[in-house]
Amino acid sequence: MEIVKAKDVVYEYIRRDEEGNIEGILKAVDGVSLDIRQGQFIAILGHNGSGKSTLAKHMNAILYPTEGTVWVDGKDTKDEEELWNIRQTAGMVFQNPDNQIIGQVVEEDVGFGPENMGVPTKEIWERVEESLKVLGMYKYRKHSPNKLSGGQKQRVSIAGVLAMHPKCIILDEPTAMLDPNGRKDVIRAVRALNDVEKITIILITHYMEETIYADKVFVMDDGKIAMQGTPREIFSQVDALKSLRLDVPQVTLLAYELKKRGVDLPDGILTIEELVKELSKCH
């Protein structure tokens, strides 16, 4: 069953001059169709301005397509009556952790979503406890979010979405403002949500390393889907990625360069372990 389905989606930003006349129309998303099945781990890659964040906001009914249709769990996002159901089904985590935490105490922030949904008080507490435990933030439940590190804040944000019991979580560049350690923690937490809780994950990012665990990768460029496939399929096309102004992971690049110089290696090596194994086979 498809949790998110998009058909020929177009989204136009209209630029106006000071008098309100239309200066130009920018197609941020241009004819995108995709199907995401329940339980998948999807990564959407692209450089700045490729339309990936705009596309993500369609999956949570924050933006509506100018043309085409987006369905979340079978519901058309333009259907106003289903708006809150859609937002509950597809939770969204944003880039800046400071700008999405509402509560002054960690546990209050995690409870914000369920409060809005009208969940009874006792169940809110159960959900908050459960979500914080899944994200490994339970011991910080009484802390002020201002005193947490970026990675911890972002895990609180994810817990806040998880407490709404979504089927799907969309993460819009959740690691862009974090240090490498915070980034690792967040990605580990996201993978666990997918593996253990079976929640569909849609990860928007421009860090290649974060996409290697995905079931499927979409590469966006200029509002269109330029490439799609498994991480291995995508990363074996080093030249194509470079032409889209994207860098492949260092290991993959190393393997690619070695292969070009005559070392017998398969395409699309994604991890250091893999490269070590393949290299030791060569001898």
Binding site: R87, F94, G111, E115, G160
Partner: peptide, 23 residues
């Protein structure tokens, strides 16, 4: 920040005080 926060609150189903429960 205000713009981001408003979006984040809407994404978490915030729709004013009606029908809201308290933690």
């Amino acid at each position: 920040r205000a713009n981001d926060l408003a979006m984040a609150m809407e994404a978490r189903c915030y729709r004013g005080g009606d029908g809201r429960t308290k933690m």
